[in-house]
Design a protein around this nucleic acid. Structure first.
Lengths: 237, 237
DNA sequence: TAATACTACTGGTCTGGCCACATTAATATA
DNA sequence: TATATTAATGTGGCCAGACCAGTAGTATTA
């Protein structure tokens, strides 16, 4: 007697609560800034114990979805990219394969993003790109943190120039994840094919493409750049 | 009398527990696959109540760091990048009203993803694509849920075919976000330029490109498709 | 030997209590 | 009257102990 048996997924009740709260968020019944009912009220609505409520809330708080203020109440958080960093900081344990996947995702997003950036960048944003480039240029001898920061600023400005908040957040989260990796592998970068001059040149090409609103060229140059970096980094893994 | 006061950060004890567990992970005292002491034992080691332990553990479980198996114990999970994107996925829920931005992000990711899919799809995945297409074809008259599910399956399979877990998770989160939107606007889709046949044809073109490993063509067809859909959807907003 | 029942241990949930903190209203004080 | 002070109330933080429900290993039995 062979029957198809469906896997039983015993949903823990705190998971169920989390799901419901998520649904409320999706459907817009609660928005960032809103105050959630008190734990005791939630006990009555959900008909569960306070323990379960609290397990759900603490999980949501750790994920940066909620803010629990003692004596005041529980509030839906306005998402700040920084807060996301906390939970994403767990990525310390990324294994080799995941890092490569993450690099690939970054490539996917940033290559497309730079296309939009080329179409939409304001004069101010383009100016900020030149500033980042200047910093890189003036620190050829110094391969340290200055040019590293300038590099990050360059890429971040591109994200901003897409004028797509979700993209900004996404790229922010990803670069947070890769930050320690990038930092660790940067010296290695210069041992490989990269010199500060070459790195600068690649960025400059991207910049020029953006400046001249050539989105195809911008995408191409970004792809070239990230492929190069990716290849060097993967040597270190 | 003005003195500099440092902000008091009252760390909740479940946060403290989480920090300690993280430290144990970083220092390598516990590794993925390991079994954590039972909750009752942790109560004794940490000298706190079981509630606090459970609040910490449930948070860690939601973040994908732990796996809690009823009756067995708590185990350190092998980190999967998907779990890392969990909090990111959450953050996407919180920013409603940026549907167009979300559509754009989907386009960015999926256009690139289909390129990788074309290069990496296994025979099985390609077969699954044909199945989804079949379902769409057999339901021309029925513009309802069947073809909608087939549509989702098609796009999901493409995500899987990238063989990049982060991409899968990301596209999953995004389509989750757009789910209700897609569902709501689907009837409108057919009022515009789209017929079930046209929709099918666009998917077929993508499929063919993947089948023949033509990643450029796949990206192009996906871009065409998503641009078309996006245009129709934006009419409804 | 193999199927069964038992038992000890694990997480899942609940109850109800006490404390510390924050806000607000009532009260005493200058 | 205006202003401190205090009390009351509501909120989260934490705890102790209980009971249920799975799991696994062991002892028992057919």
């Amino acid at each position: 007697m062979h029957v198809e048996l469906k896997p039983i997924k015993t949903k823990k009740i705190y998971e169920e609560i989390i799901d419901q709260i998520r649904q409320l968020l999706i459907d817009g019944y609660i928005k960032p800034g809103d105050k959630l009912p008190s734990e005791r009220e939630l006990v009555e609505s959900f008909k569960v114990s306070r323990s379960s409520i609290r397990e759900a809330l603490s999980a949501l708080e750790m994920m940066g979805v909620l803010e629990v203020r003692t004596g005041e109440g529980t509030f839906i958080k306005h998402i700040q990219p920084e807060s996301m960093m906390a939970s994403l900081a767990w990525s310390l344990y990324l294994d080799k394969g995941s890092i490569l996947e993450m690099l690939e995702v970054r490539k996917m997003i940033e290559v497309q993003a730079v296309g939009y950036a080329a179409e939409r960048a304001t004069d101010k944003e383009i100016y900020q790109l030149t500033q980042a480039l200047e910093k890189m240029k003036n620190n050829f001898s110094n391969m340290g943190t200055v040019s590293e920061k300038a590099d990050m600023m360059f890429h971040y400005t591109i994200a901003v120039a897409t004028h797509n908040k979700i993209t900004i957040r996404l790229m922010d989260a990803i670069s947070d994840n890769l930050q320690h990796l990038i930092h660790a592998t940067r010296p290695k970068l210069y041992e490989g094919k990269y010199t500060p001059e070459l790195l600068y040149k690649e960025h400059e090409k991207i910049y020029i493409a953006i400046k001249y609103r050539d989105s195809d060229e911008a995408r191409f140059q970004m792809l070239e750049h990230l492929n190069g970096v990716e290849k060097e980094i993967s040597k270190c893994l």
